Deep mutational scan, measured.
Amino acid sequence: MKHYEVEILDAKTREKLCFLDKVEPHATIAEIKNLFTKTHPQWYPARQSLRLDPKGKSLKDEDVLQKLPVGTTATLYFRDLGAQISWVTVFLTEYAGPLFIYLLFYFRVPFIYGHKYDFTSSRHTVVHLACICHSFHYIKRLLETLFVHRFSHGTMPLRNIFKNCTYYWGFAAWMAYYINHPLYTPPTYGAQQVKLALAIFVICQLGNFSIHMALRDLRPAGSKTRKIPYPTKNPFTWLFLLVSCPNYTYEVGSWIGFAIMTQCLPVALFSLVGFTQMTIWAKGKHRSYLKEFRDYPPLRMPIIPFLL
């Protein structure tokens, strides 16, 4: 059985960083990364991007050496992705923050609204209902991160945790300040508006959870398998008939419901920014589905049925 020789060059300087002799033909890129780490321990596998061309796409960890368009002496180019952190850690951090930050404003801890309001309670029912909904949303997200989601990528750049936390924590503080303010004004149409908004919120939260469970069942634990998601017997998953990412559709719907319930401008802005970002993600995933699966359902749109 022939063996391969693998040289790894710096993608920027073309400097030879490592030479691997007698590499098995069936070795994966993940195994080559581990061998590279032995000579350069500062670059652990998650930091490494190996590619066939200095400006090309990163090879997948599961790619097999003998199936790549290389000879028995293969040249790979290395790029440092920077310090990495696990997706689970990032999600837990960015979701735990809003949960606790919101509660600080809800309980009106000292130095927020003035001494005479310390630890007082709002007289408006919608304020307490909003706290329950907000807390439920982020507790749900935390539990899904721990027990439901299966991540195709193990890590992301460390800098992302600061960007994500600034976004989630900042908006949580902004909306919580106004919703729990002693001078907060309840919704214009009173109980009817709150009940309608609560119904929207609850339905969308159930829908979002149902989609996450359906997506989880598509991917076996520990794998990166991708399949076309289809509706199940659960009615909340029937939205798969019309959109590629109904989890985002339901998520946006939840925040629209919360915005109607609280009639709070920061919540509306958070919903708008979230919708914009999720639309970008949904379009990317939709394109990926179309590219990977020739039999992908043609009627589906990325996030909004028939429109977007």
Rank of each mutant, 00 (worst) to 15 (best):
I304T: 07
G170W: 14
Y44F: 05
M301I: 06
F162C: 13
I132Y: 15
L50S: 06
C133G: 08
E144Y: 02
K16I: 08
L290Q: 07
A46R: 13
M213L: 07
S49W: 02
L76Q: 06
N34G: 05
R287Q: 14
K2N: 07
V70K: 15
S152C: 08
I132N: 03
A96P: 12
W87E: 01
T120E: 02
G190F: 15
D217Y: 03
F91W: 12
D63G: 12
L142F: 15
R108Q: 11
A173F: 05
S223V: 00
Y106H: 04
R219L: 08
L9S: 11
Q192E: 13
K12M: 06
S121P: 11
R123C: 11
F147P: 15
M278K: 09
E7P: 00
L104Q: 05
W255C: 05
R79Y: 00
A259G: 13
C18L: 14
L68T: 00
V267E: 06
A11D: 03
A268P: 05
H128P: 04
H115R: 10
I256P: 02
V252M: 09
I29T: 10
L76M: 02
P231N: 08
N180Y: 04
G284V: 11
W169V: 11
V88Y: 01
A83T: 10
E251W: 14
D21S: 05
A27F: 13
L265V: 13
H134Y: 05
P302M: 06
W43Q: 11
R108I: 13
F36L: 10
Q48W: 10
K12Q: 03
F270E: 14
K16Q: 07
V126L: 10
W174R: 05
L196I: 00
P69N: 12
G154N: 06
L59W: 02
L103G: 06
D10G: 10
L242F: 07
K163S: 15
L65I: 06
G114V: 04
Y296S: 11
K22F: 07
L35G: 15
L9F: 03
K38Q: 14
V194W: 15
W255R: 04
Y77H: 09
E94R: 03
L103H: 14
C204I: 00
Q205L: 08
I304N: 08
L265N: 04
Y178E: 00
E15R: 04
G190A: 03
R14S: 09
V6L: 09
H134I: 00
H212D: 03
A214D: 01
G82Q: 15
A173P: 12
V273M: 12
W87K: 00
H286L: 08
K233M: 12
D63A: 07
K2L: 07
K163M: 04
H137G: 10
A259P: 04
I29C: 12
C165S: 09
S244A: 10
A46V: 07
L215Q: 04
P69S: 09
Q48K: 05
G114P: 15
K67I: 13
R150D: 14
R51T: 15
L92M: 07
I203V: 10
A11I: 05
F19V: 05
A11P: 10
F136K: 00
A30L: 09
F19G: 05
H137K: 09
L198P: 09
L35N: 01
Y250R: 02
A46S: 09
V109M: 12
L68D: 06
F306I: 11
R79L: 08
E251P: 02
P186H: 04
I8N: 01
F236H: 03
H149G: 01
T89L: 15
S288I: 09
F293C: 10
A46F: 03
L52Q: 06
I139V: 12
Y230C: 11
V90L: 13
L50F: 10
H153K: 00
F19N: 11
A173L: 08
E15G: 09
T237P: 07
T28C: 05
L59S: 05
K55E: 07
S86N: 08
K224E: 11
D53N: 13
K2Q: 04
H3N: 03
Y230E: 07
T75A: 11
T120K: 06
D61F: 11
Y44A: 01
Q48A: 12
C18I: 05
P69T: 05
S86W: 14
T145A: 11
R294L: 08
P187E: 01
R51P: 07
A282I: 13
Y250P: 15
P110R: 12
T225S: 11
C165N: 15
V70E: 12
I203Y: 15
L215R: 00
K57V: 13
L239T: 03
A221W: 04
L265R: 04
R294K: 01
P25L: 07
T13N: 09
T13I: 11
G253C: 02
I29F: 06
K22H: 02
V88S: 13
T249N: 08
N234H: 10
K140S: 15
L307M: 09
E31C: 13
M301R: 11
S223P: 09
Y167H: 09
P231V: 01
P110F: 14
L239I: 05
R47C: 10
